[in-house]
Amino acid sequence: MALALAILIWAIVLASVVLFTGEFGWFPPQVSEHGDAMDAQFNLTLIVVAIGFILAQVALGYYVWRYRDRSGARAVYTHGNAKVEVATVLITAVTFVTLAIIGQRVWIDLHLEDMPEDAVQVEVTAQQFAWNFRYPGPDGKFGKTVTRLINDQLNPVGLDSRDPASNDDVVTLNRMAVPVNRDIRLTLRSKDVTHSFFVPALRFKQDTTPGLAVPGHFKALKTGEYEIACAELCGLQHYKMKGFLMVMSDQEFEAWLKERAEF
């Protein structure tokens, strides 16, 4: 019994190690500026976690086998050891807090750095079960929107045509184009319930909370087409709420935007 349990625990450790180091799948390839740092932090954490996991489980398996009941003397009579306890506290506290602090670097870059002036602006408006994207157009300003004017077919974000700044705004459905290697500044909104704008390839996820305009930013380093998924339960077709992020060269992007504007 003891040996079987020990072997089983070790087998679980082994299987986990194989699963997480072998070719069984990993993060989708990443194309954003801050993605490498995030993946690196994940890997660093993975090493710390793996050490803790393997040590604890292997010890557990070993003790289970080693200290099984064999006839003979009584068990060791001890109530613990204060020095060892203190050492455990210190080691884990230092490790975990250090890890937490290192992990904040990327977060600070992402959220607390000022955006350059020339960032491309895109407004994301989520709704059940689609993504609306709005570009400010040549004037660089988003026009006014009015709730009453919203119409899913004709005016999905409720642009107010009386505001001159709205007239050149470009609105697209489920397809978002951005230029490569440029800072993109997002404003995330929702028309109805809470959604979450998730682009796996960008390592980007941000809830779109109705009533709020949440800022976000990224820079994509590689052209291509990437999927956008909704990550927060938003209703019946949550699992079908799909959009596409198209990362293209500056020229292509300008052309794309122009084409949409004329339309």
């Binding site: 740092a37 932090q41 994940f42 977060w107 998730f198 796996p200 390592r203 996820k205």
Partner: peptide, 15 residues
């Protein structure tokens, strides 16, 4: 330890 870190949680949140 993964999920408690802001920057690691972003990708893993709601997966």
């Amino acid at each position: 330890l993964f999920l408690g870190q802001t920057s690691v949680d972003v990708q893993l949140h709601d997966t």
